[in-house]
């Protein structure tokens, strides 16, 4: 039981990191219909900016993290304005390739600026732990869960209660109708990219803190999180959270139990577990757990 709880806590923390990345995918997809593969590069940028502020520049970590989130939040609309807006009306494949190209460019640019060697982010929680009964919980994981909960509550509160949140929901439902009602779709799209950039930075900070360290490979989490976005439903923020947590927990439980109880599945089965779960869920719910079913005429 102790082991199960230990794995569940680790799985939820990993799932929370996935959820932050997935939230970025979903917010942009809802507003623009674009799957933004460059999300991983913003995760990377967020982690390295935090390192730069907290490490070499020796800012207090909280200030470094907040500045990094704001900077990445600002990067989002800049990317949208300079690149993606020019692609409006172009084939979806071309738009996806632009985001993929952007991912590769930023993935190369970041180590060119900061070097290839791993770095310590300078976060205050390091490898500290607290004891909760028989379970040892990492302070880093508690912060991850807390920050993710805060970010999600903020995003949902914004969607539910703010004027722009309402505008974003309306745009997601029907862009032309929203425009007819006087909603600035351009502003909504820019706002979506801001939220995605900020969420990516937060994901980068939680991924690279503690023992993990900052290294160019952390952008790979976006690929690992992609099944979470699909199984949750690509247009659903609720699905992003649920998908992230399902993937994180299933992956960690598999890594913990499979080698001893189902060794015949081979080494590192946990790596493909997210895809197994995704396929299983899509077979039952083709639009994901919370995805919107497309209306079809009979």
């Amino acid at each position: 039981m102790e082991q199960l709880l230990q794995l569940l806590v680790a799985g939820l923390a990993l799932g929370a990191r996935y959820a932050l990345v997935t939230l970025g995918f979903v917010v942009i997809f809802r507003a623009t219909g674009v799957i933004n593969f460059a999300q991983g590069s913003l995760v990377l940028l967020g982690a390295y900016l935090t390192y730069q502020f907290a490490g070499p520049w020796q800012w207090p970590f909280l200030l470094a993290a907040i500045t990094s989130v704001i900077a990445c939040g600002a990067c989002g609309p800049v990317i949208e304005r300079l690149l993606l807006r020019r692609m409006v009306g172009r084939p979806a494949f071309a738009v996806i390739m632009v985001t993929l190209g952007l991912l590769i460019v930023i993935e190369q640019a970041v180590p060119t600026m900061w070097g290839q060697d791993p770095k310590n982010m300078g976060d205050p929680w390091g490898i500290d732990t607290v004891q909760a009964g028989a379970v040892t919980v990492a302070v880093r994981d508690l912060w991850t869960l807390g920050l993710t909960a805060l970010a999600i509550a903020g995003v949902f509160g914004f969607f539910r209660y703010s004027r722009y949140g309402l505008a974003m929901r309306a745009t997601a439902l029907d862009q032309e109708a929203a425009q007819a009602q006087g909603i600035s779709v351009r502003r909504v799209v820019a706002l979506s990219w801001t939220i995605a950039g900020a969420a990516a930075a937060l994901a980068g900070i939680t991924v690279a803190s503690g023992e993990a360290g900052v290294s160019p490979s952390i952008s790979q989490i976006a690929l690992a999180a992609f099944p979470a976005a699909i199984l949750g439903g690509l247009d659903s923020p609720y699905g992003a959270i649920a998908g992230g947590l399902v993937i994180g927990v299933s992956q960690t439980l598999t890594a913990g139990y499979q080698p001893d109880h189902a060794a015949w599945l081979g080494d590192n089965f946990h790596v493909i577990m997210p895809y197994v779960v995704m396929i299983a869920i899509l077979l039952v719910r083709p639009y994901g757990l919370f995805g919107t079913r497309e209306v079809e005429r009979a």
Binding site: G11, R17, P118, V207, G213, S217, Q220, Q251, G256, V271
Partner: peptide
């Protein structure tokens, strides 16, 4: 573990459960 794994609770739990006194570790510094 898979290169680049962001969470190693699973394999470390496996080692802890086996009550290992010594573990030979191979891989990259990250």
């Amino acid at each position: 573990y898979r290169v680049g794994d962001k969470d190693m609770t699973g394999p470390v739990t496996q080692l802890k459960r086996a009550k290992c006194d010594a573990v030979f570790l191979a891989g990259s510094p990250t």
